[in-house]
């Protein structure tokens, strides 16, 4: 594989892993959400995320060639080979935590896919175009809940503010400069995500303000870096559950 291909593969893995890991976290709510409608909504959104992950990982497998499959990439990589952002792998927490993570990530994904629709890489452009339609529904869903919870009861407000405080430290990573994105942006294949930061911050800040919530700047530097495979221990636990059947019964079919 030449260097350009390797960069494209890594970029597809970034895009795919973000959706795969987030989709898995959302799926953990199935049967546990506070109300039936939300159980169904979160399962629907999880399904969209996993579908999008399948498209990206499938494209990565095609770039790699040599008979590599989408399933190999999802089920047979180790934690340090995953390139998702840390915010995706954090445990699902309470309902507020899940909703606020979703809100922060939906805004980011919306802006990202909007740009990627124009990628010179056909598959990336096509997947982005298709997925954007779904992300619009996700974004509307999480945005409505942010208002409902933030500007709701005293308890829902407090839980929202706590979730937001905890999550905010992980949002810097969404916009880190990244060598692969930089190289591929020169060829109009990728978007440098730091360029999305201002618009993201405007949108998110405004909505949180309407929801009567405050952003607490967290000065702590995060020592991990998901894009380069340095993850929290949460990813180990997530993968050991997600991959157990495939690893315990290699080649099993059902």
């Amino acid at each position: 594989m030449n260097l350009k291909n390797k960069n494209v593969v890594d970029y597809l893995l970034q895009l795919g892993d973000d959706r795969l890991i987030l989709g898995h976290r959302l799926s953990e709510w199935c049967g546990h959400a506070p109300i039936l409608e939300e159980d169904i909504a979160l399962a629907n959104i999880a399904q969209d995320c996993l579908g999008q992950a399948t498209f990206f990982l499938n494209a990565a497998a095609e770039e790699i060639g040599n008979g590599k499959t989408t399933d190999d990439l999802a089920y047979l990589r180790n934690p340090n080979q995953f390139k998702n952002l840390l915010i995706m792998e954090l445990p699902k927490g309470d309902f507020a935590f899940t909703i606020f993570r979703q809100f922060l990530v939906d805004n980011y994904t919306f802006l990202l896919y909007q740009q990627l629709q124009n990628s010179k890489h056909n598959q990336i452009a096509n997947i982005a175009q298709k997925s954007l339609k779904e992300v619009k529904y996700h974004l509307r869903h999480s945005s409505e809940w942010v208002l409902r919870l933030g500007d709701g009861t005293e308890i829902s407000h407090e839980k929202s503010q706590n979730a937001l405080n905890e999550l905010w430290a992980y949002t810097n990573e969404l916009f880190n400069e990244n060598e692969i994105e930089k190289k591929l942006a020169e060829e109009n294949i990728a978007i440098e995500s730091f360029k999305l930061k201002n618009e993201w911050l405007d949108k998110v800040t405004q909505h949180l303000k309407t929801a009567t919530l405050k952003i607490l700047e967290n000065k702590e530097e995060n020592i991990f870096n998901g894009r380069s495979g340095k993850h929290t221990e949460h990813l180990d636990h997530l993968l050991s559950e997600m991959q157990i059947v495939v690893r315990a019964y290699p080649g099993a079919k059902w």
Partner: peptide
């Protein structure tokens, strides 16, 4: 509208 997400991905409730 009860929920934008229904019994399958393509429907609202």
């Amino acid at each position: 509208l009860k929920s934008e997400f229904g019994s399958t991905a393509c429907k609202s409730f």
